[in-house]
Structure formats: structure tokens, C-alpha cells
Nucleic acid binder design. Structure first.
Lengths: 224, 224
DNA sequence: TCAGTCAGTGAACAAGTGTTATCTGAGTTC
DNA sequence: GAACTCAGATAACACTTGTTCACTGACTGA
């Protein structure tokens, strides 16, 4: 490798772009503070000053990172739903392994609930803003969810159970699964965190709903 | 009948309780104005002064009718979901008549979409606040939706197709139908009002989803 | 080493907010 | 017709809000 400065090359204490790193750091702080505050209120009622106060930074500093609170919201949508793509790959990957249908459904529900638990704030944010009062955020969520549905659709297409299904039909099915997932995650948020009984009811309900849907899928081609 | 005053009894120009009627009138105006403003924003960002200004009344007058904006929201939930009960009765009544399954599904979807169109503001409000930032409103919606699910469940129980289903299972199925209805109505809101193609896609998607669910229902008892 | 960049500061701005106390006058009741 | 009630008006309160501006000073690159 070529060296850019005369310093000792091995440990590389990364003196490069300290400025940029610091900026990124307060940007993160703004996003985190925003997400934290959004646990109890919705984006349209969140104040710019509220966020900067939480971070401990001057109000004007906000504009160095986002033009708007809406822009911050859109950024949050990105990280909330971006990390979800790996999850869906996990869930769909289970289909390739030789597990039976019931087991697969339980696994998918378990993955969904676990994810919802690990990302409470993100999920709550998505559920709240999906039909919320801020247009650009709503659109960002819709777009991300659409990409997501497409991904599930192509995943389903690879399964033997999808023989004879048109791409359009598979997309509808995928959308049904995705909406069901979002609904389940939102339900988990709504239940008190320390009430295992309520949680079990949610999980059991989610399983049965998914079984019904999968049963319908299995018999879709019965009448030609 | 007995007369309470000596005036001519027949036409009864209703001089009684003028005060109360006037109060009710501005209460209605507040609710209407609130709903109108909530088409473009969510409850948590709505201002008390904003509402009274829209009505043309002093800010302080608001407190004669509601302690809170949250209380106004709860009242709106009541009227938004109250009128829906008659709709579900309509849809379920179709089951009693001798229509075949496919026709029944189309009818139900049509009813749902028509209702959503006629009550745009109400539906938008419910979708927005279901997981919105105002706790009491969220709870009111959840409670109303639960009552609603119960009603659907007892309606389904009366159908021959429900033989062998436990009440708990019927409740899950009813919940699935209800959530699907809400989802469909919300999707109708999201589509541009003057784009028939987008609307058709939504209707067609809703139908197929419902067919899948109903198919799953029909085969639920296949494996005992 | 030195000039330039730019993330964050501090102060001021014009508006907006929810809430309160006091007053007014039409509607009610006897 | 006089006494009372109470929906709504008026005005003031103490804040909070988003946005702007000129500024400071650590980091950057030559």
C-alpha cells in the first residue's frame, strides 16, 4: 500500500477526516435523540428545539444536518426498514431447509416478534408514521415497504408451493404476509412490555392468522 | 299526551332548551372543524386555537365542551367507528342470503371501499391515530375495534361454515377480517382520489386477499 | 506555518401556543 | 318581571416555537 503521510503506517490512528467523524457523531446523536423522543409522541408534534435540547446542542446546529424535521424522519425510516431486509432473508431462508409448514410459521412469527422487541423504538416509529401526518415520511415508508414486498415476492417465487402462481398473484400474497408482519410487530408494541400473557396471546394470534393465510395459499389453485 | 305549557300544542316550535341546542351546535362545529383540520395533520400536532379559529369562536370557549384536545379526539373516535356497526351488519347479513362465496367477497369489499369513500375524513383519522401519539385516543380506537371484532365473531358463528370452530378461533378469524378491512380502507385513503387505475388495483388486491383468507378458513378443519 | 473551511454558538426575531380570570348578555326558571 | 345560570368574549399571562445572522475556533490542506 501507499502511505499518504510520513507517520508510522501500522496502527493508523486515523487522523484523517476528524471533522467529518465529529459531524457524523452529532448527526447520530440527533437521530438517536429524535427516535427516543418519538417513542411517546409522533413526528408532527416533535419540535426541532426539543431534539437539539436533548442532544445538548444549539438549535441552529440542527440545520447543518437536516433541512427539516421531516428529513430526519425520512432518515429514520431508512435505518428502521433497512435493517429489516436481512431479517426477511433469514425467514425466507428457512423455507429452503426441510422444515414442515407449521414449524416454519412458528419460526417466522418468532423472528418477527424478536425483531420487534429488539427494535422497539424503530417499529413504533414506523407503525406511528405509516399513516401519520408527515407526507414525505409516509411516502418513504410506503416505498420501503414496497421494495420489501417485492423482495418477499421473489423469495416466495422460489418455493415449490408457488408453482402456477403469476407474479402479480405472488405480489399480493407477499403484501399480505408483509402487512401481517407489520401488524404483528405493532401489536407487540401495544402490549405492556411486562405482561407475558398478553404477549402470548399476540404470538398465538399471529400464528393462527399466518396458518389461515398459508392454508389459503395452499388451496389457491384448487378450482383451477 | 299532557301539555307542559299553555301554548298551542300542535306544531310545537320547540322553544324548550334553546340554550342546550346552541351548545350542541358549537360542539358539533368544533368536532367538524377538528376533523377537517385532521385531514392534513395528526392530532398531536393540532392546536386548540387552530380549532377555535376555524370555528370562529374564542379559544376559551373550547373548554366549555372538552377539557382537552385528546377528549375531542376520543369523541371523534366514537362517531367514526360508531356508524360502522351498521355497515358490518349489512355485510354479514349478505351471508344469510343465498349468495355464493365469491360474490359475497366482492360485495364486502365493495361495501368497505364505498364506506371509506363516504367517510374519508373519519377513516383517515382512525388510520392515523390507531398507533398515533395520543394515548387515550389510541386506547379508544383499540376498544372500539375490539367491540367490532366481537360483533363480527358472533356474526361468523351464525354461518354454517363456522361449524367446529371454537369461539377463540372465531375471534382470531374475525380480527383478521377486521384488520383487513381497516387496511383496505386506509389504502383507499392513500391512493390519489382521481386515479381510477390505482383504486382498481387496491380493490382487486383486497378481493384476492380476502379470497385467500376465506379459502384458509374453509380448509381450517381439514387436518382435524 | 498559514489561509480557508465549516460545525457549532449565542442572541435576537416575530409568531405562535395553552390556560386563566373577569366580564357580558341571552336563555332559563320561578 | 326579577334572579340566576352559563356559553362565549376579551385580554392578559408566561412560555415555546422555527429561522436568521454574525461569530468563533478547531480541523484541514497546501
Amino acid at each position: 500500500m501507499s502511505h499518504t503521510s510520513g507517520a508510522a503506517g501500522a496502527p493508523a490512528p486515523a487522523p484523517l477526516r476528524v471533522r467529518q467523524a465529529q459531524k457524523e457523531q452529532t448527526r447520530r446523536a440527533l437521530l438517536d435523540a429524535g427516535l427516543r423522543l418519538l417513542d411517546r409522541q409522533s413526528l408532527s408534534s416533535l419540535g426541532l428545539r426539543e431534539v437539539t435540547r436533548e442532544v445538548g446542542v444549539a438549535p441552529a446546529a440542527f440545520y447543518r444536518h437536516f433541512p427539516d424535521l421531516a428529513a430526519l424522519g425520512v432518515a429514520l425510516v431508512g435505518e428502521a426498514l433497512g435493517s429489516l431486509h436481512t431479517v426477511v432473508r433469514d425467514a425466507l431462508a428457512g423455507g429452503a431447509a426441510g422444515a414442515d409448514a407449521a414449524e416454519l410459521i412458528d419460526r417466522t412469527v418468532a423472528i418477527t416478534v424478536a425483531y420487534a422487541d429488539e427494535h422497539r423504538a424503530h417499529i413504533r416509529f414506523i407503525a406511528r408514521e405509516r399513516y401519520g401526518g408527515v407526507r414525505p415520511v409516509r411516502e418513504a415508508i410506503a416505498a420501503e415497504l414496497a421494495r420489501f414486498t417485492e423482495e418477499v415476492a421473489t423469495g416466495l417465487a422460489a418455493q415449490p408451493a408457488s408453482a402456477g402462481w403469476s407474479p402479480a398473484e405472488l405480489r399480493v400474497l407477499a403484501g399480505l404476509y408483509v402487512d401481517h408482519m407489520v401488524q404483528t410487530a405493532a401489536a407487540v408494541m401495544e402490549a405492556p412490555q411486562d405482561d407475558p400473557a398478553a404477549r402470548d396471546t399476540i404470538v398465538e394470534t399471529a400464528r393462527m392468522r399466518m396458518r389461515i393465510i398459508s392454508l389459503g395459499r395452499a388451496h389457491w389453485l384448487d378450482g383451477r
